[in-house]
Design a protein around this nucleic acid. Structure first.
Lengths: 243, 243
DNA sequence: CAGTGGTCTAGACCACTTT
DNA sequence: AAGTGGTCTAGACCACTGA
């Protein structure tokens, strides 16, 4: 194993993931951790960290005393809800050619929900960008991002909004998006949303209503997104919580 | 620290979690890992494992070179989507007195979706249990569980179905539920579901359609659940996926 | 019983942030 | 420069599985 760039653990994870994809393991059985450690020339801890990540992703499962195995069911997942980052990436993972259209860039006063989520006052100006993602020309995701205008440096053109939101936040706000806290809200799509997504009005849909935080845990963006369910269905793995 | 029962890591996690709840840390700053290790008499690895779990739960966040801090926003989460296990527990976490009503226990032939999910043939008999959860008397969650009849030992009464599904699977099927792979489906609730949840017909709702697997990664149960969104809203933390 | 994953230790070095 | 979290090592012992 080479050691430049990503961490050893990440390299090991990739290595094993590729081996799984190439079906190099007979019977879906993955070698013992100690064997992998010897073979790859790293410590067992590093192997275990990599395997833990793969287990969390659903690519493998482990049984104490028995061994580590490929998870046939988990491999089918295309878009894991808790790992979604850019819609371009999600759509690409589905095997489509994604395209982005910036519908609108404007500044408006914050409404109550936005102000509360972003920790600003009602009426404070927020920059709103509306984007529509299509795959093979069909609209799939509609998103609205709201960023406190006080965070945005300089004038923003529509062309600036094309980039993924975390790139925008890094470039124009000097903040790095760390994670989202997301609410899942069932809705009947209203007239405007339905029209943009080319759905029947009042059709059921899932709406993400989420706040994005930077590495200092400060809220920096409120994102609201609607999805065409038939085209983009979300999955997740649910495990027992520690009590 | 005592070492009986749960792992050291789990004890440390609980210890720190309680300290956070009691606001023992000034300025939301959590002591350095090395200090915690000395104070609690465990290795830094154990501390780190405990902190990693708390970070994943959203209770804390870490910044390399700076320190570890309480996550004020994450603490507000009541029901994390990826950690839901029993609806009784979820409702209790919301501060309500939950109650369970078994609506129906029957055996029926598997439809296509059930057969595919459970790896059985269409028409094979499945045991179906319907349950309604209320909080303070108000219906909140409706669930249908389908288990291949071949897995179920002995005759099942309605009273047997009252227990949480993983207890049922352990008691009557000798299987231990390991995790769910869950689809989130937006729906308009139909007449029967709406009536049972006392919702307006055709109101939007989120439906879980999920397959539960045992520790051998074999599908053992298909669960379908509907929720009253106003009463039980789901949240999750989304982080950047490893690419 | 041998082999496997689960837990834990003690220590090293690095990358990064803050003073 | 000092302090912090991030990565990695080498090794120990335990709990569990399966032949």
């Amino acid at each position: 194993m080479i050691s430049r760039g990503p961490s050893l653990t990440e390299q090991v994870r990739q290595h094993i993931k590729e081996a799984i994809a190439e079906e190099q393991f007979e019977d879906g059985r993955i070698p013992a951790e100690a064997d992998l450690a010897t073979e790859l020339g790293v410590s067992r801890t590093t192997i275990r960290d990599a395997l833990s990540r793969l287990e969390h992703e659903g690519a493998i499962y482990r049984r104490q005393g028995a061994g580590t195995f490929v998870n046939q069911h988990g491999l089918q997942i295309r878009s894991k809800l808790d790992e979604i980052w850019s819609y371009e990436d999600v759509l690409e993972a589905h095997g489509y050619q994604p395209s982005v259209q910036v519908l609108n860039v404007r500044t408006e006063p914050a409404d109550e929900a936005t102000a509360e989520g972003l920790g600003i006052d009602i009426g404070d100006p927020v920059l709103v960008t509306e984007k529509l993602f299509r795959e093979d020309g069909v609209p799939v995701v509609l998103t609205e991002n709201r960023i406190p205008a006080a965070l945005v440096g300089g004038d923003i053109q529509e062309s600036d909004a094309r980039m993924p939101i975390w790139d925008f936040l890094a470039t124009h706000c000097g903040r790095s998006l760390s994670h989202y806290l997301s609410d899942l809200v069932p809705v009947s799509v209203g007239g405007v949303v339905a029209a943009r997504l080319e759905m029947k009005a009042s059709a059921p849909a899932i709406c993400f209503d989420e706040i994005g935080y930077d590495s200092d845990n400060e809220p920096i963006v409120r994102a609201t997104s609607w999805f065409r369910d038939e085209l983009l269905r979300f999955r997740l793995i649910r495990r027992r919580a520690a009590m």
